[in-house]
Design a protein around this nucleic acid. Structure first.
Lengths: 147, 147
DNA sequence: TACTAAAATGATTATTTTAGTCAACAATTC
DNA sequence: GAATTGTTGACTAAAATAATCATTTTAGTA
């Protein structure tokens, strides 16, 4: 039941981007530095988010990453979906055909309930919520006043 | 966010055992056959459940597995805990020290909420609930009337 | 145009985890 | 003591993870 680095880093990168969006385009290198993620790896991590249309990238001098949607319109459930695929704890929840027991398997029902519970949490939180929470906690950790 | 086979097989084995507990001791071989899990692998899967005192095993002829606690007293949250460890989607939720960002990281708070949501589901369901649900669905799939 | 800065992409790799198998051993019953 | 059943530990193949690196493409600028 662990999240991979794609999900963890991706959400952090998106939050970092939102926190610095006032400056317009943000350098991937700066996100990588503030979030302590290696730049080459971060490039791979954000690929699905770019493909999903959440952000736009520009190459060359003055290039960088730009948020395309308003943070208030970006739900964490979508983000995790793009980064990790389905949050179902077992495949049969989404695709009953992977197991011929699906039709009468009560444990499958349980995993469906778990999926639903996780979805409800992530579906109720937007990137804007994260931004506000972070501002309440202070900008520490976004690299601004970092020791 | 996927469960490993330990969690999936372990819960199914426990449910199978509960469904056949009227017969007293149940052969691991029979559980393996009904649940379509290889016997040698199932032996490894149930090890943590035996260690946790949920079931007892007896070797030799007329041996097998016996449920030690009443199904109504066995919560899925415990079972998954024994089989998979913490259900926290990231390690820092349980152990803040693994990351120095923990104190001011709002994404960590989110993963904590996810953990809590999953826990609430699994904590509210007992093995007895699974048994009853399975009986409502019919014994199919427990190997009894299997085609 | 040439140069430089930035992201994109694809190949490669090391490590870890997963999902088992197998063989030898221990205990229990008949 | 022979057969049966579970226990344990070693081992392994395959997949996923978490990267790194080199090359390419794009965009701005001197």
């Amino acid at each position: 039941m662990k999240l991979s680095t794609r999900g963890r880093y991706g959400v952090r990168a998106l939050l970092d981007l939102a926190l610095h969006s006032c400056e317009g385009t943000v350098l991937l290198r700066d996100i990588a530095r503030r979030q302590e993620i290696s730049l080459p790896y971060l490039e791979h991590v954000i690929t699905p988010l770019v493909a999903a249309g959440l952000m736009k990238t520009t190459r060359g001098p003055r290039g960088g990453v730009l948020l395309l949607k308003s943070p208030a319109e970006i739900k964490l459930s979508e983000v995790i979906g793009f980064l990790e695929g389905s949050i179902a704890p077992v495949d049969c929840v989404d695709n009953p055909d992977v197991c011929r027991r699906s039709a009468f398997c009560v444990t499958r029902d349980i995993w469906g309930e778990v999926k639903e519970a996780v979805h409800q949490v992530l579906d109720s939180i937007t990137l804007q919520d994260l931004v506000e929470r972070q501002r309440e906690k202070g900008q520490t950790g976004t690299g601004m006043y970092y020791i």
